[in-house]
């Protein structure tokens, strides 16, 4: 089985995606360039309909782009090879994760590798602070708990890249902080995080890079946000957040 070399380093160039055909086609993404590096977190922000989810779905191999050049190291991959390469290493989590019929424990067991012991599910429950919910029907969980189940599944899978579409939408501050804490453990273990969020203020504790999408194009890139001094981060972050907030609104 082919798999991504870790820490992951993938480069995407000239991603183009349209929906529809002929005169009715609509350009969703145009000329997108980005990189994914293990242990780094990138926040994709932009208003609704700017193409954030579409971009994540393309990176996750769930949606085929009209055009894209994808490279890992010195190798250029076609779409089929790319999908084969990432199928066990890139995980995409929906804004509202889908819970299958059955208990939380059953849902977590779906993420087990065949050589993984069943006790791993107990560890994942503990990691996500869901032990008290282990025998609850997963479909009856709250949005925040569903997100933690999905993160626990990711924790079991240990993907090289974790893609999250609005993971803290509609969450209160406490749940959002808890989710951020869980995500930071992925970063520490070398997983690359790509998060789509309409709010540029979210995830500032873990975000290395921030991309602003507008009508399918990257119109602003902030890099190395966590490597600068605390004052610089605060100034730059506050300044950029103000600019981004204005652009988004």
């Amino acid at each position: 089985m082919i798999s991504i070399t870790r820490p992951v380093h993938l480069t995407y160039k000239n991603i183009v995606k349209t929906y529809g055909k002929g005169n009715h086609s609509k350009l969703i993404l145009s000329d997108i360039e980005l990189q994914i590096k293990g242990g780094e977190c990138t926040l994709i922000t932009g208003k609704n309909g700017s193409g954030k989810s579409t971009l994540l779905r393309i990176i996750g191999g769930l949606l085929r782009p009209n055009k894209a050049t994808i490279e890992t190291g010195l190798i250029t991959l076609n779409w089929k090879k790319y999908r084969n390469l990432i199928k066990n290493d890139v995980m995409y989590l929906y804004q509202e994760p889908y819970m299958f019929d059955g208990t939380v424990r059953k849902n977590l067991s779906y993420a087990l590798h065949k050589d993984q012991a069943k006790e791993a599910v107990d560890k994942a429950l503990k990691w996500a602070e869901l032990e008290h919910r282990s025998n609850t029907q997963a479909k009856f969980l709250s949005g925040g708990e569903r997100q933690r189940v999905a993160l626990a599944q990711a924790w079991l899978k240990q993907p090289a890249v974790l893609l999250l579409d609005e993971p803290t939408a509609n969450m209160d501050t406490k749940s959002r902080k808890r989710t951020e804490d869980l995500l930071s453990t992925f970063k520490e273990s070398g997983t690359a995080l790509y998060i789509a969020s309409h709010d540029p203020n979210h995830f500032h504790r873990i975000t290395n890079h921030r991309l602003l999408l507008d009508e399918g194009r990257i119109v602003q890139t902030d890099t190395n946000l966590l490597n600068e001094s605390a004052q610089n981060i605060k100034d730059k972050s506050d300044n950029n957040i103000t600019v981004l907030s204005k652009q988004i609104s």
Partner: peptide, 26 residues
Amino acid sequence: TELRAWDTAKTLSSSIAKAFFIIMRE
């Protein structure tokens, strides 16, 4: 079933066959 169900099954599974059985159970 929603498209999310199939996407999630594929994401969680190491093979299409395993994803198929997850959806079958659903």
